[in-house]
Design a protein around this nucleic acid. Structure first.
Lengths: 335, 335
DNA sequence: GTATTTTGCTTAATCGTTTAAATAGATTTG
DNA sequence: CAAATCTATTTAAACGATTAAGCAAAATAC
């Protein structure tokens, strides 16, 4: 039943040593001067016995597993899932397999995943890093393990990363709203000190200032952690409190969705009463009664670059690369 | 820099053999009667050297990798992504790691993924099987490798599976539409012979017959393969051709979305002119101007059951289990 | 006080592959 | 024809962990 076939079985069948079999099946028959008849016999036997090399043994010997450890926030989130798909394709193309885990933005889980992947001797990591996990990433670097960060990075850490130009994203979006006549433009962001969020806020602030709308600046900072329902409640409350507003700029996908639910509940007319620019994109944006304008992250570019940088590092490149990719502003009916 | 620490290093430091170190670190110090001082020294040394067991070596020796191979259709698809997340959580809870791959409903890719995972000695597979891959699954079974199928199954194959009660799903949905006064109810399905699709069609047919609506039966069968745009074109054409219809029942998530785009383009009024029941659910369903009624698959149940059945098989259970889970009909504004 | 058991440890094989080094026979060189 | 070179192959040591078997020395039994 369980027909595990090893090199030894082929060797025995042909009547040679495992070394020869290994050479032939790895295409070293020329280099290692294996006899022509023997080459054919070994190939034949391998086919007949349906031999499949044991990657585990090979990994142990070679010291490389051809495996990438991927840590995303939540694989069930479309943003994570889409970038995962891009990384998967790029990895497979290069003969790598991906093992993954969801950190849920939780430091403990992040640390546990990193450890698990280390035990499993992954050749390198692609990580969307959780806030406050600098030390975890730093430890990897210290061990000399290739790492590429995506989506976020730590300024004080010298690690390769591929991220969106977050400043440009909200800067462009704000300018777009201004150009379409909106003035009382408010931003909805997460309450966090992480660099990517700060940059998104900064893009909004700069654009407002440059358009002489400093008076109108207002950032609703939603606390992390609570449930979706609580987030929506918080946003709804803040919207009602606002003295005046005619446009909203959301800093992330989930905030956009939460906002959309609120707007539907409050019966606000988009884009007449309120202009909206969302973030990241989603099929839901298409089916909102006024299809949403949004800032798109070029996920395909981010995923492929991150993977190719990582594979470069795995193959011995030393250069730390910092890639910042440009956002795409999709203008539709909500602004 | 690269501080790979092995049992040997600890053994050398303490001045004992690797056997003792292995015993202690695996908690066998009682059973194997290791001296008290030595136990402490070994623990100490392991901590000091920051020892991390090499899972690859352990796997080779133990013949088990504590790894599950998961094959979904497309990890970037929310359905796949959500069930993947459930499986991940259940796997991690049991000390397993997940490696995954997207088959894109493509036999060649499916076969390549299975092979890759076999090389990597996964302990078992969870597979959403591609049409026409019976032989691939059968080969796994023949090798004695634990497999659980999800979403679809092959009637002629004796493999564990966890699937939706597809008949019940469309049967309930159709009855619901009838109860709400719809009569000219048409179904939109994929043109495929696979069991799960046939069952969904059968649920519709049976319900129509039982309600004496045989005259109205009509199934739009969309050919697989072409692009999203072509699918939408096909559906739109068929809708226009229909002599009369007042409700549509969609057989899958992607068909529902394609249909929603068509309906928006044609400006059809839902639910007045047309009742709709979708499949699987999506955030987009919530933001359609008439939030969609839909048949929900209890993904959490499917994912946890599939994983626990698989782990059971890995742990030596022999019984083949066939789980059929009940759909949930969510009625909202579109019907 | 010899025989037996217990205690605490080491040895060495093993998992399946890779690969440097050794070897033996055939062939070429000078 | 001895020496050097090729050719075709084997041997054996890794990789790092696990674990059965073996072996002294100490403790207990009778």
């Amino acid at each position: 039943m369980d027909n595990r076939v090893s090199l030894k079985d082929i060797a025995r069948k042909v009547g040679v040593s495992t070394a020869l079999v290994s050479y032939v099946l790895n295409g070293l028959e020329k280099e290692k001067r294996v006899g022509d008849k023997v080459v054919i016999q070994i190939r034949e036997a391998a086919r007949e016995l349906n031999y499949q090399p044991n990657q585990i043994a090979r990994s142990l010997r070679r010291g490389s597993t051809k495996t990438i450890g991927l840590i995303v926030f939540d694989i069930s989130n479309p943003f994570s899932a889409q970038i995962t798909r891009v990384i998967e394709d790029e990895a497979v193309k290069n003969g790598f397999t991906v093992i993954f885990g969801s950190s849920d933005e939780n430091r403990i889980k992040s640390g546990a995943l990193i450890d698990t992947f280390l035990y499993r001797q992954v050749d390198g990591f692609i990580i969307a890093p959780v806030e406050g996990t600098e030390s975890q990433i730093a430890a990897l670097i210290k061990k000399g393990i290739p790492v590429v960060l995506i989506d976020r990075y730590f300024p004080q850490l010298n690690v390769s990363h591929v991220i969106l130009d977050n400043f440009q994203a909200t800067f462009d979006a704000t300018n777009h709203l201004v150009k379409h006549g909106y003035k009382q433009i408010k931003m909805v962001a997460w309450l966090t000190s992480s660099t990517h969020m700060q940059e998104r806020v900064r893009g909004y602030l700069e654009a407002m200032k440059l358009n002489n709308l400093e008076e109108e600046i207002d950032v609703v900072e939603v606390p992390l952690g609570p449930s979706k329902a609580e987030n929506e409640g918080f946003i709804e409350m803040k919207l009602k409190e606002m003295p005046s507003l005619d446009a909203l700029l959301f800093a992330t996908n989930s905030l956009t969705l939460a906002g959309m639910y609120c707007i539907n509940r409050l019966g606000i007319k988009v884009p007449q009463e309120l202009g909206i620019v969302g973030f990241d994109g989603s099929e839901a944006f298409d089916f909102f009664y006024a299809p949403l304008s949004y800032v798109e992250q070029p996920l395909h570019v981010i995923g492929t670059k991150a993977t190719s940088i990582l594979i470069g590092l795995i193959n011995g490149e030393k250069e730390i690369k910092h890639q910042v990719v440009k956002p795409i502003l999709n203008v539709r009916s909500s602004s």
